[in-house]
Design a protein around this nucleic acid. Structure first.
Lengths: 127, 127
DNA sequence: TAGTTTCTAACAACCGTTGCTGATTGCGGC
DNA sequence: GCCGCAATCAGCAACGGTTGTTAGAAACTA
């Protein structure tokens, strides 16, 4: 895997960002420096990084896949109003009730808390 | 909201099905009885039912929105190999760590256990 | 029966993503 | 320095899932 300027820039864009950007957001940011880069390259690089375990792709039901440079196990708060995503520490001890599907082997547990972030909860409902 | 044959059939297809079908799967099933129904009508009806709270749309990262007639709060097991989805009872007491984002108001907690279902775990890895 | 409202079907469009392809780049060997 | 190979990149087209639009059909009301 070669270290190309495109990849360096994409990698940097991810790690300077705790907003869980979409591929499109990365594309916009990188394009500010490299006007000729293509969206295709961004997708390709993000998928490569994900395959190497350098970033975690997450799908929070917001329509587009997001990429998370935080590799430590954690969960997410998602604001239904503004779409903001916030990391929270993983919670220990979550597992399926023992009487359900005892043969299922769990390899990952995704927890998403949905609701309103502080700013949106304080604000009166949007008109 | 009128009760039309199309809606009745779609509603029935959902409630006779615990596989969390996609709109497309519903479409195929209903079309067996009503060859002229359009995919558009299925989507529209499913969205209407969801808006009324009669079914719950769920996005488990499988690419398409699924519809769950089970309205009681519950979580899901998702097999990474065969895509099977199984309901499990909700787990009490899951909430974000108290020291994180204390102003966030949680309205819903989605938990997805990913891994291998019994059949897929038992089977030797697919060649 | 005419008017009004609701629903349906068909089509095209949209979004996020990926397959394909030809051009480009970097690197090792000679 | 030159050649050939392999990897990469950009651009476009295409794909799956979903929704907007619209014209026509159906049902309900007065």
């Amino acid at each position: 895997m070669k270290v190309t300027p495109q990849r360096q820039r994409i990698f940097a864009a991810l790690h300077g960002n705790d907003r869980h950007p979409t591929a499109d957001a990365i594309f916009d940011e990188v394009r500010a420096d490299m006007p000729t880069i293509s969206l295709r390259t961004v997708y390709q690089t993000l998928n490569d990084l994900a395959a190497m375990g350098e970033v975690a792709p997450i799908d929070l039901g917001t329509g587009a896949t997001r990429f998370d440079p935080n590799l430590i196990e954690h969960h997410h708060l998602v604001c239904d109003v503004c779409g903001t995503i916030v990391d929270v520490d993983a919670i220990a001890g979550i597992e399926p009730p023992g009487d359900a599907e005892p043969t299922f082997v769990v390899t990952r547990t995704d927890v998403v808390f949905r609701g309103n972030c502080g700013a949106c909860a304080a604000r009166p409902s949007p008109v």
